[in-house]
């Protein structure tokens, strides 16, 4: 195994757990700590990417373009990344994000829909950005199928394509098989993004590395959607013990997690019963807080909502189906014999 490149996405995936309340001060402190600890890429965006601020996903307290500018200002060595989901964000926000300092653009599609990202990759490459493709909900399709979709992104100009376990539904052999399939097909790099809903965030990342992954993601304290992501400070310690530390200061990252991120977290993401259900049912991790809120409003067990969403094959970004399913289930509950 070789030392992977690490992208920290506390300030993007963590935006979900924070209900999109990151402030300039949060960004300043977290970016400074990550930068000093040797993290080479730091992602800063609304959890659902540029233009994600909405009723559907939750409004940003501070516009993410302002947070990106703040991050770029304080980072001395690290490159600043942003996420864009075609269908939500457009080339307009892409251009605005570049003007505010974004250097790496990660473009995410549902893993079956890579062909909606062509224009965005082209524009990002024309603007001189490093580009990363993000195949979300990768557990829903076979390794061979994913490799075809990844090839499309490569043909559009992706410098790396990630297998993204958005639902935290993969087991280690699932992660390894998918990374292997992409490695065997692509000339560009391959990445892996984990969620910890089944307690496998670190384990799946390790399996991906053994399968040849070049890039991996982490969040301080695992602060991310669902049960969170692979914790950056844990990854640093594990990579170091494996002898493939890419230059991360293990103790400094532990401090960043403990003293910078932990104090501002509204809760510690972990596999509680609702988060486990997300991995178990194979639904988008960001559904967690929305399902809890709507479950409370409608008197329906969030787990029942999540399992039904899995049955309906809901995909990334379909938060509006949560209310739909909850109302259907509430009606059934009402009519069920006592």
């Amino acid at each position: 195994m070789k030392a992977p490149r690490l992208t920290d996405t506390t300030l993007r995936d963590g935006s979900h757990a924070m209900a999109h309340t990151f402030t300039r001060q949060h960004v300043r402190e977290i970016v400074t700590a990550l930068d000093r600890a040797g993290v080479p890429v730091i992602e800063v965006t609304h959890g659902d990417g540029l233009a994600g601020s909405s009723l559907q996903y939750g409004f940003s307290r501070v516009p993410d373009l302002d947070l990106i500018a703040e991050a770029r200002e304080v980072a001395e060595r690290a490159r600043i990344a942003a996420l864009l989901l075609p269908g939500i964000g457009t080339r307009r926000e892409l251009k605005a994000a570049v003007e505010r300092g974004v250097q790496v653009l990660r473009i995410a599609t549902q893993c079956t829909e890579a062909d909606i990202s062509e224009e965005h990759f082209k524009m990002a490459k024309d603007m001189g950005l490093e580009t990363v493709g993000f195949l979300m909900m990768s557990h829903m399709r076979s390794p061979e199928f994913l490799a075809e979709q990844a090839s499309l992104m490569e043909s559009y100009g992706a410098d790396c394509v990630y297998v993204v376990d958005s639902a935290g539904a993969m087991l280690p052999h699932d992660a390894a098989a998918r990374v292997q399939a992409l490695k065997a097909t692509l000339r560009v790099q391959v990445g892996f993004h984990a969620h910890n809903n089944l307690g496998l965030g670190i384990g799946n990342t390790l399996a991906a590395l053994e399968a040849g992954a070049d890039q991996i993601d982490g969040c301080l304290r695992g602060l991310g959607a669902g049960a969170g992501n692979a914790a950056t400070e844990v990854l640093a310690a594990v990579l170091d013990r494996l002898g493939i530390n890419p230059g991360l200061d293990v103790l400094a990252l532990m401090d960043a997690a403990e003293y910078v991120v932990a104090p501002i977290m509204p809760f510690q993401p972990f596999p509680d019963r609702d988060a486990i259900t997300i991995g178990y049912a194979g639904v988008y991790s960001t559904f967690l807080l929305h399902a809890k809120r709507i479950g409370e409003q409608t008197g329906v067990d969030p787990r029942a909502i999540l399992i039904e969403l899995g049955r309906r094959q809901a995909v990334a970004g379909q938060e509006d189906w949560i209310l739909d399913v909850a109302l259907d289930l509430a009606r059934k509950q009402k009519h069920a014999p006592a």
């Binding site: 549902q110 829909e113 909606i116 094959q313 995909v315 970004g317």
Partner: peptide, 8 residues
């Protein structure tokens, strides 16, 4: 916002 859903 537009979302494409590949369910079968």
């Amino acid at each position: 916002i537009i979302i494409l859903n590949p369910a079968e």
